[in-house]
Design a protein around this nucleic acid. Structure first.
Lengths: 158, 158
DNA sequence: TATTGTTATACTCTATAACTATA
DNA sequence: TATAGTTATAGAGTATAACAATA
């Protein structure tokens, strides 16, 4: 029952996890632990933002004429959930929603001055965070890792 | 406000996501979409297992003398949540909990014959899933990707 | 009749405190 | 007094159906 390779590295708890070490999904999850923790410590906690909220602020920083519809498509969350998130960010006066004149069903979502300032700040902070995270990798390794992850991500037809 | 690189690849919803494309965490999340979907379609749905339950079955397949304590340490979930998961799997008669004779506080968690059969089946299925997922990568790329992800995962001191 | 966005709701996951039984 | 495991509970995150307003 126990693994035939007793010198494999083991999990905390000293359990053989060789059955998972062959799975990409497991490695992705393991690699996500430090990135998620770093995000929480460096950005999430201080600015009271979760990953989705962070992403929304970043998208608003680089795009005009953003609507909830386009956002929910882009980040792949159901419209009702996005409504709640936008409510939250609007209540904090980080963004504002205005009705389109051309089509009154549509809303335009824009950063407020405070939202813009915060978005710029966390954008810069994310660069620092990234340097820390990737300090163990050479620049070549880093480029390779990103390219390989993109190749996996493209496999989106499932 | 809009990105200075208008020919960058864009997100569904046609949004510029250049601010996220520089972040490892974002690439990990994007790459996790197909792996998670594939897991759900090939294993999760048919066997009614989530990722944690799958991991637990795999750990039980390769380890003896497993206790809830060791499991909760290994997969890093709070003990109360593990109790609920083990309850669920025990009710399905995939595993059994027995009191240790040496220390009656401790439980030993073991696969039942059905649990063992299922664990072996999903272990083999996970190999097939993996082939599909990595079919876009050469063997060298695949090895490189795993090594780079391990390097990132080691960065666990955060 | 279709689309944008909202409300209401339910289900899962995750996190914490308080408890029991054993040592 | 400390440890293994449980109970109860609260909070996030996620998903779906039904609705209002507009086209």
């Amino acid at each position: 029952m126990t693994s035939s390779r007793p010198n494999e590295p083991r999990l905390p708890g000293h359990l053989d996890h060789s059955k998972m070490m062959k799975l990409l999904g497991y490695h992705l999850a393991q690699a996500s632990i430090p990135t998620n923790n770093l995000f929480k410590n460096k950005i999430g906690q201080e600015f009271q933002l979760n990953k989705l909220e962070f992403t929304i602020l970043m998208l608003l920083l680089s795009n005009d004429e953003v609507t909830p519809k386009r956002l929910s498509t882009a980040i792949n969350i159901p419209a009702p959930n996005l409504t709640v998130i936008l409510d939250r960010l609007e209540k904090r006066e980080l963004l504002a929603r205005t009705r389109s004149q051309a089509d009154r069903r549509v809303q335009h979502v824009q950063l407020t001055p405070q939202g813009l300032a915060m978005a710029r700040e966390i954008d810069q902070l994310s660069d620092v965070m990234e340097q820390d995270l990737l300090s163990h990798l050479t620049e070549a390794e880093c480029g390779m890792l990103f390219e390989l992850l993109k190749k996996v991500a493209v496999h989106r037809r499932v």
